[in-house]
Structure formats: C-alpha cells, structure tokens
Computed example of a mutant assay.
Amino acid sequence: MHHLIVGPAGHGVTAYAERLAREVGAEVIREEEYGDSALPPGPIHVAFTDHLFGSSPREALEALLGRVGTRPLSVSFHDVPQRAEGERRFERRAAAYAALAAAAELAVVNSEHEARFFAARAPGAAVRVIRLPVEPIDSPFDPEPATVGVVGFIYPGKGHEDLIEALAGTEYRLRFLGGVSAGHERWARSLERHAEITGWLSDDELAREMGRIAVPVCAHRHYSASGSLMTWLGAGRCVLASDSPYTREIDAWMPGRISLVEPGSWREAVSTYRPRRVAPPVHGWDAVGAMWQREWAACGLM
C-alpha cells in the first residue's frame, strides 16, 4: 500500500501521516501541494482534511477520487465537520466527507465523537476509531508559579481569547507554546499584548517549556480530536480542558488526567488547580500502528 501524504511540513495532519507511514514501513508519495501525477497501482492510503486537497470541499473530494480511480482507498479523516463551524460551511464539508467515507474501503477517525458524525451522514461506510497516539514526552517537571500554558499551533477557536478574558487582572501569566498558523498572523498579534507567544519550538524545546508551565490548558471551543491534549498527557500532565463530548470521551478512557471546565469557569478552574505529574498513558505509536495494520488486513488492503 502506498501512502499519499499531502500538505506543508509541520502541519498537524501531515505530521500524523508521516509518522504513521514510518511506523508501518509504508511506501510514501509526498506532495507539499496536492498534485495530479499518476498514482502507482494498488491500494492508496491518505490522511484527509479538505483544505489540503482543494479550494472547496467538493473540489477536494472530486480531485482525490478522480486521481485514485478504481484503486482501493483507505482514509484517515481529520478536522471532521462540526455544526459550530456555521451551518453553510458544515453542510458543504459534511457532504464531501460523507461521500469520501462511502467510497473508501476503510475510513478511520480519531474519536467516537467523530464516528457518530459518519454514522449519521454515511451509515453504510466502514468507519473505525483509532485514537490519536499519546507518545511519552520527557518533560522536566519544574513549573513556574502562576504560569498558564496552551500547546500547539495558534489559530482562532482554541480558546486563547477566552483565557485572556478570564484571567485579565489576575497574577497569572499566559504562555502560548507554538507557532501561529498561516493566515492568522494579524489576529495573533492582538494576543501578544496579553500573552507570550513562543513561536515554533523543536521537540526538545517544547518538552522543556511544557515543564515550566504550572497550569496546562486545552481551551478549544469545539473539539473533534486534539493532538494538543495528547501532547500534555504524553508529558504526564493533568490538564484543564473545556467540557465537550470529545473531552468527556477521553476522560472516560483515561480517568483522572483531565479536569473538565464549563464555559465561563476558567478563572475558578485555574485558581484552584494544583500542578502535578503522573505516569504517561500507554498508547504510543507502536499501538496505533498495530491497530492500523489490523484494520487494513481485515479489509483486504494488506
């Protein structure tokens, strides 16, 4: 099976696809931007989020299916549509995602929350759940008092403004550990008056900076799955996370590691949090790769 990996280096979906390909020893077709060259014969696997494959959800769907042709197709779905995006955008994206899942021999999502979307929109599709890996991170535990941290790419919707508003006038110092997603630079400059933005960090730098944070936070307004949450858990940190179907699912899967925060309750949650570290969960890339291989074999793709 060949893995078609599309997108810029460092993009979350691209990074997931590259790491999975390494884990299973796959042949890779790598494209920074989606192309149209002929694909080799045999099964094709893609990690899909629509904006990497076309200028609209329909264009992305048609471009991918047209290029794959009659080859067996396996898809890892990311950024699954949610109604919170706005009804019009949701419907456009939902139609494309459902059609792609129906055309694939195997469709995989990262949470039961995402699987429910496909159960409603593409009930005949073969959709499986393989949760995001939680890789152990060697992060020195040396929290600085009154520091509140958010990990990962910085873009609207991750709750940065909510934290700024909630903690205004308090002693807490906000640190956003990551680079700004392309296209959101002007918006991010408005955050710099209230928080430190580190910019892109290497793995070692990120591990070190995470260890300096007293209060780890995932404040996304709308989750479907979260690599940022898994990064905190991989460092053995207990996290404050906004309450949602997804975070409730992860809390049930890995109890005792997440404190769920209702909207409007961030100041209270931060002020009562006590830093602690626990052993990281056991759900690394070796387990995730093995799960993928079992699913491919069950569908006759290996």
Rank of each mutant, 00 (worst) to 15 (best):
R237E: 06
G289H: 07
I137E: 03
V215R: 11
V215C: 15
E59N: 02
A95M: 07
F153S: 09
H2Y: 15
G178W: 05
R237K: 09
H194E: 08
V151L: 15
R89G: 00
M210T: 06
V278A: 12
L174C: 09
D79C: 03
E205N: 02
G178L: 09
P123S: 10
H160V: 12
E295S: 08
I5H: 08
V75Y: 01
A102F: 03
P255C: 10
L106R: 13
P156N: 10
S55G: 13
R71H: 03
S242P: 00
P81S: 04
G236K: 04
T198P: 02
G179I: 00
H11R: 05
A104Q: 01
W187V: 05
R58L: 15
R212N: 05
L240I: 03
A47N: 11
Y172Q: 10
D243M: 03
G54Y: 05
G66A: 11
G289I: 07
R83Q: 14
G35K: 02
R175P: 00
H113Q: 06
S56L: 12
R276D: 02
P145Y: 10
D36V: 11
Y246D: 00
F53Q: 01
L167E: 07
L163A: 11
T147W: 06
L240V: 05
S190Q: 09
L39K: 11
W285I: 01
A84M: 10
T198R: 02
E32W: 04
E249M: 07
G234E: 02
E161V: 12
A63N: 14
